[in-house]
Amino acid sequence: MGVYLLRRLFQSVLVMLAMSVIVFVGVFAIGDPVEILISPDADQMERERAIKALGLDLPLWMQYLSFLGNALRGDLGRSFVFNEPALKLILERMPATLELAFGAMFIALLIGLPLGLYAGLKPNSTGAKAVMAGSILGFSLPTFWVGLMLIMVFAVQLGWLPSTGRGTTVEILGMRWSFLSWDGLRHIAMPALNLALFKISLVIRLTRAGVRETMLMDYVKFARAKGLSPARVTYVHVFKNILIPVVTVVGLELGSTIAFSVVTESVFAWPGMGKLIIDSINVLDRPVIVAYLMIIVLMFITINLLVDLAYSALDPRVRLENK
């Protein structure tokens, strides 16, 4: 296990380095670095001083090394708009995004697993066919439009739920969370459901395919031959087997959920880092863009690593191979 962990960590560092090169080349080489790093309002004197100070007269590889060195010290530049360190801006908004993403994953499992199980156990029933048709819809509907429709129905027409913001938050561990207050829950309900929509379809399909495949396995028939109750066969023998691939995929999807929260946050004016990045792209606040990309890549790599570890913890066969 130790060797395995080390090897995976090493791979992760390599990917991180590769991504930093891509972001560096993308932002610093393709675009005009002067425009990117220096506020457009700066005058000529300021510009030249900044070019010197930023080392933009140095060869590219040296610039990359200094970028990397700064990044390692947690310095990813200052936002032009907020005049604050970009990293700090992003970290401040991260809890809101994480809360939204986890909420969405929770909803996706809560709705997707039972529906997928039902569709897999009774594949020819009308209900199952409706569920599957619904899942095509879930894949097809553009997230932002569904978000707008949710607002139109639940906020504008019915007036049940607020359309924007986080609502009342409760502070724990120095971070503010919405899900701990009733008002906060009312605020997070719609955005989380909106973000979950695509994942619900995914979970339904995965679960259904898994159930149908597992039901054909000899060990399910053997479990029935042992005289186990249908509930035990379904919820222990079938369910535990499909849970492994579903949990793996859902875990891996956490990264993409965080990425796609960009859209949902824009629709519901949810003050997370996704909203920040869109605003930053629109006003060309490039240090924030760079910081966001680096942070999200880091999150991605961490999530992949954690999912790998969780997977080996869940599946006894994988666990053995790694010993």
Partner: peptide, 16 residues
């Protein structure tokens, strides 16, 4: 009434 299956590699649930 009990039953024993053909392929022992497939009859036991791998995750239990």
């Amino acid at each position: 009434i009990a039953m024993i299956f053909q392929d022992p590699m497939m009859t036991l649930n791998p995750v239990l």
